[in-house]
């Protein structure tokens, strides 16, 4: 800023709305009490079990957010408040944690989640085209959340995708559409491309 800085004061009009008893639109959020949040009992029990696994209950924040996401499809503000009440932390704390991580969604997303790797090895072998194919096939369907993703740790099956938390590859671009249709129809997804079914590279 040094070269551009101009020390002449600029007078702007004082807007009285900036100082007159401004009322916040919504209440601030401290640690909610359990009776205020109507946490489903299964969720509460789940989070309490998770907290019990760690020497410090706050360690359960990521697992608890996973539980919220499982229950509601994404980390809804209500779900975060419920987890916060059980964990006795502020909802802000949990939202801050959730928003740090790519797999936790603080905005609504479709129930089928497809992450297509676009990182170096997959990019070299057609990851971008695969992503396009998935996107085209899922276009306009709110049940699907398709996203490009950083390296998923499966460069051996490049290009690949994670579909509802299971890995598939190597995929032809056309298989994007196939997988989406299979998901829509409730069929098994790309059975022959599942990572679980592969042998060791050195044995092939």
């Amino acid at each position: 800023m040094s070269p551009d800085f101009d020390p002449t004061p600029v007078r702007l009009p004082v807007d009285p709305s900036l100082t007159e008893g401004r009322v916040p639109g919504r209440a601030e959020e401290e640690i909610p009490e359990l009776h205020e949040v109507a946490c489903p009992p299964e969720l509460q029990e789940r989070i309490e079990t998770l907290m019990g696994r760690y020497p410090d209950r706050r360690s359960a924040s990521i697992p608890a957010l996973w539980a919220v996401q499982e229950r509601y499809g994404w980390c809804t503000p209500e779900g975060i408040r419920q987890a916060a009440a059980v964990m006795r932390v502020t909802p802000a704390y949990l939202e801050s944690v959730a928003s740090f991580y790519d797999l936790l969604h603080t905005k609504r997303v479709g129930s089928h989640r497809i992450e297509v790797c676009t990182n170096i090895s997959c990019w070299m072998r057609g990851g971008d085209e695969l992503l396009d194919a998935f996107k085209a096939a899922a276009e306009g369907d709110e049940d699907f959340f398709v996203t490009g993703f950083e390296c998923l740790g499966a460069c051996d099956i490049a290009p690949m995708a994670s579909i509802d938390q299971r890995y598939y590859g190597p995929l032809e671009a056309a298989e994007g559409g196939v997988a989406i249709e299979q998901l829509r129809g409730g069929a098994e997804v790309l059975p022959e491309k599942a990572l679980a079914k592969r042998g060791l590279a050195g044995d092939s």
């Binding site: 916040p24 919504r26 209440a27 601030e28 401290e30 802000a92 939202e95």
Partner: peptide, 26 residues
């Protein structure tokens, strides 16, 4: 220790904010 003001998002997208865009009243 009100833990209401937090960082949201990550990297250079990080910003200072509150839960659900509520006001920071403490």
């Amino acid at each position: 220790e009100d833990a209401q003001l937090q960082l949201l998002e990550r990297g250079d997208r990080t910003f200072v904010g509150t839960f659900d865009e509520r006001p920071y009243v403490a």
